[in-house]
Amino acid sequence: MILCAGESLIDMVPEDGAFRPLAGGAVYNTTVALGRLGEAVAYLWPISRDVFGEVLLRPLAEAGVNTDLCPRSDRLTTLALVTLTGGEARYSFYDEGSAGRMLSPDDIPELPDAVAAIFAGGISLVPDPCGAAIEALVARNHDRLPVMLDPNIRPFFIKDAEAFRARLDRLMPQADIVKLSSDDLEWLYPDLDPASAARKVLETGPRIVLQTGGAAGAHAHWAGGSVAAPAIRTTVADTIGAGDTFNAGVLASLRRQGLLSKAGLAAITADQIREALTLGAQAAAITVSRHGANPPWAHEMPTG
């Protein structure tokens, strides 16, 4: 079972001059996508008892996600006000004192034996105490479990860039896979092109660094060199949840190939990585073809 740890929130998406509340959050989207793809997945993040908490729980249940590790909270659900410019999503967050933000390191449980890998990231890495909680989860488990990290950097959400960089400097060497968009890489290394920046991250310790760039496709950098997979051509409705769904496709492919383990990732080949990138791109293409973070179900994925 893959454990996903990180934020869930309500995306307030513009619709007909108003805003429609949709379940979202980077790590939450990846969790739902994994469940819809038929993977065994669990979620770790506080869920509010407010009405939006029920909105968040419904897609998790429909996708078969295990929520036993999700504490319920009387604090409010985080809101993200979404604006769309040319199909590209931009966000304003209402998060102070929210259910998820107040997750602390003391709230992190011992993980069940069924957990075989960890996925973490998103804005949950930025503020404390929740950022420290996710960092503690990774620190306690990375020696025995493979970890995939997607910081999904939102500069406008980061009040202390130096502290956040320091957290990433601690987390990325503990991760087996780090996924970074071109925008993430530009924020980390503004003087380098994306490929050079990705290789710079690789030097810090991860086994694989995934570099995504929308229509430019996805690249993977690892000890064996670099491989690429093109983006899948489709009509884009919006990009909400695209990278999150890509993450789920990669993880699902690695699990299906028997590679989602420390040993498997240590011996991975170029063809195996390319297969994972391709499934990630196929899943993301379906998500961007429809509005909101609405990842595909297994029966919607290409076969063969």
Rank of each mutant, 00 (worst) to 15 (best):
62 E>D: 15
11 D>I: 01
191 D>K: 10
116 A>R: 15
198 A>C: 04
254 L>T: 12
94 Y>L: 15
109 P>D: 02
177 I>W: 00
13 V>W: 01
194 P>R: 14
207 R>I: 02
21 P>S: 10
248 A>I: 04
175 A>I: 02
4 C>R: 02
276 A>L: 04
129 P>G: 06
131 G>M: 04
70 C>I: 10
242 A>Q: 04
128 D>A: 07
70 C>Q: 12
156 F>G: 01
14 P>C: 06
155 P>N: 03
234 T>N: 05
101 R>E: 12
154 R>G: 11
226 S>T: 14
19 F>V: 13
104 S>V: 00
111 L>Q: 00
260 L>E: 11
182 S>M: 02
111 L>S: 01
215 A>H: 07
42 A>S: 15
155 P>T: 12
292 G>A: 08
281 A>F: 08
229 A>L: 03
248 A>S: 14
287 T>K: 09
10 I>R: 08
188 L>S: 06
55 V>M: 14
246 F>L: 15
153 I>P: 06
15 E>R: 13
151 P>T: 05
40 A>K: 15
179 K>D: 01
198 A>E: 07
282 Q>E: 15
107 D>R: 13
245 T>V: 05
182 S>D: 15
192 L>H: 08
94 Y>M: 14
292 G>Q: 03
122 G>E: 12
63 A>C: 08
17 G>R: 09
175 A>Q: 02
110 E>W: 11
129 P>F: 02
